[in-house]
């Protein structure tokens, strides 16, 4: 893969020098810090709402660290996933439309190196910022609730990360052949399709769709069978990035 190391280095530098470092990491950190606080405050908030309504009485159990973790996981599965899809719409299309791909690809850089470096740099950003977020959430939860078992946040977060890596691969394939906006739209469509597919038993057990709901199940103490979803998820990542390379090789710049 000609030019891979140099181009990956450029991608990582770009992460730290542009908006990339603020959007997803910022969002993750925000949810990490606010999830425990919101979980803790929810009963008081509802109580204050109920106090203004005569005859209305709301009984809410005392919140625990699980409510904090639940809030974190819900945010990962919904808002962070959508933000991930929108920000990776231009993962390849952005360089095509700005003309930077032309200057890079007329030098000794292969198209496969270009695509794989793009995937890996974005995957690395999501992995690192999610782990930092999970650590921040764990710390804040401990500070707020005085109890925060590490394993209960690590497993759901790891399952979500596996799903996120599949989503980035989906976006890499879409972005190789579409414009940024179209790729973002197609990605959101694919996300909802996977979510719906995960309601179907066989897809839940044997395909990457099983990773979509796995974080919530793990948090609830269930023991979902994840071997096949992880295995097929890894294969899907390889197939999708491979497809992105093939599509991008055929694209004219």
């Amino acid at each position: 893969m000609r030019g891979f190391t140099q181009f990956l280095r450029k991608e990582l530098t770009e992460t730290f020098r542009t908006w990339r470092i603020w959007v997803l990491p910022g969002l993750l950190l925000f949810f990490a810090l606010t999830s425990p606080v919101i979980a803790k405050m929810t009963p008081q908030l509802l109580e204050s709402v109920a106090s203004g309504q005569e005859g209305l009485q709301i009984t809410i159990p005392e919140p625990t660290y699980l409510d904090s973790y639940s809030q974190w996981v819900k945010n990962l599965q919904q808002l962070v996933a959508i933000a991930l899809l929108l920000t990776t719409g231009g993962i390849i299309a952005g360089e095509r439309s700005s003309g930077t791909a032309v200057l890079v690809l007329t030098k000794p850089v292969s198209r496969s190196a270009f695509v794989i470096a793009k995937y890996l740099s974005h995957a690395l950003l999501v992995i690192v910022s999610t782990l930092v977020g999970a650590f921040a959430c764990w710390g804040t939860t401990y500070a707020v609730f005085g109890e925060a078992p590490v394993s209960r946040i690590v497993e759901p977060t790891a399952a979500w990360l596996a799903f996120a890596l599949v989503l980035i691969a989906v976006m890499t394939a879409f972005s190789a052949g579409m414009k940024s906006l179209a790729a973002g739209g197609a990605g959101i469509g694919a996300f909802f399709a996977i979510s719906i597919l995960s309601l179907w038993g066989p897809a839940l057990r044997y395909s990457p769709a099983g990773l979509a709901g796995a974080p919530s199940s793990l948090l609830m103490g269930e023991n979902p069978a994840l071997v096949w979803p992880l295995l097929t998820g890894a294969l899907a990542v390889i197939a999708l990035v491979g497809a992105a390379v093939l599509i991008f090789r055929r694209i004219e710049l």
């Binding site: 700005s98 032309v102 007329t106």
Partner: peptide, 14 residues
Amino acid sequence: SRSIGFLPDVPGFY
């Protein structure tokens, strides 16, 4: 590609 240098009509930079 090692032997050529290229400038497109509208060069795109980072």
